[in-house]
């Protein structure tokens, strides 16, 4: 009984965490606590097999699956506190409270006969007892369960399968497209020029210089242009950079402040 009284408040608090945690990961941790505590309660109630299954299937597999999906869709996503449906929280609280009170006060008190205990049922061992039931009277249900699991696996595969909307483009297609672009719009068919070529500096953020000395934007990755981190390829800028990188330079700290300029 001690086990119960220790675990019960923990479980309730952890379960309430499911209601109030802003981050999904915290909620998942709360659920994990509830599940492990449940496993212990199963063990305490003469169900060692379920104890093991609870740990392995729920805590081990299902919770991991939850966390895995949470990682996939973004751990950080926390829902806004503003309720979108007017009165939903209040109504849910009221209905939940009413339901809880009814269930706890009446159904919870519905146990009238004295507890039999599982000593007799578990005499041959809990696993053996369950097996006798499972492959005895419940064998058809087990078969259906097997079918259910296989269906679920197939369903999950179908759902998770990414369907491409267009046919995959082969290398020949790409080459043809490139030449068509050249013919129609004069886009250079060959590789894009690498950055830093003929520049004084060969970093990825420094554009290549054309023979007349002007920088070529196309030589730099679009994402760097998007972030505004392109350095000019002119002499002054390169000299400036070289001076800053020089450990012996005095004005290094000052220059670091104006790095973004």
């Amino acid at each position: 009984m001690t086990t119960f009284w220790i675990l019960a408040p923990v479980m309730v608090i952890a379960a309430l965490g499911l209601l109030f945690a802003r981050k999904a990961v915290h909620a998942a941790l709360g659920l994990a606590v509830v599940m492990i505590s449940l496993a212990i309660l199963y063990a305490a109630q003469g169900a060692p097999f379920l104890f093991a299954v609870q740990i392995i299937v729920y805590t081990g597999a299902i919770m991991m699956l939850f966390l895995f999906v949470l990682m996939l869709v973004g751990v950080d996503t926390s829902e806004s506190l503003r309720e979108t449906i007017g009165g939903q929280r209040l109504a849910a609280a009221a209905v939940g409270l009413a339901f809880g009170v009814v269930m706890v006060t009446i159904v919870g008190q519905a146990v009238v006969s004295p507890t039999t205990g599982l000593k007799a049922a578990n005499a041959d061992g809990n696993v053996e007892g369950l097996a006798a039931l499972m492959f005895g009277p419940y064998v058809l249900a087990v078969q259906f369960t097997a079918a259910l699991l296989i269906t679920a696996v197939l369903g999950a595969m179908v759902m998770a399968h990414h369907e491409s909307l267009l046919p995959r483009r082969s290398q020949a297609d790409l080459a043809r497209q490139r030449l068509r672009d050249y013919a129609e719009r004069g886009v250079h068919p060959g590789n894009a020029p690498t950055p830093g070529v003929f520049a004084r500096h060969n970093a990825v953020d420094t554009p290549a210089l054309l023979p007349d000395g002007t920088p070529l934007e196309a030589s730099i990755s679009e994402s760097i242009i998007g972030r505004g981190q392109v350095r000019s390829g002119y002499d002054e800028a390169v000299d400036d950079m070289a001076r800053r990188l020089d450990p012996a330079s005095d004005d290094r700290a000052d220059d670091e402040e104006g790095e973004g300029k």
């Binding site: 939903q88 209905v95 339901f99 009814v102």
Partner: peptide, 24 residues
């Protein structure tokens, strides 16, 4: 008829509560 699943779930839950009360 809001279109929100949660709203429908609330209705259902309230229905369950009422059914339980009736049974009792």
């Amino acid at each position: 008829q809001t279109g929100y699943v949660r709203s429908y779930a609330l209705t259902m839950f309230a229905g369950v509560a009422i059914v339980v009360l009736c049974l009792l």
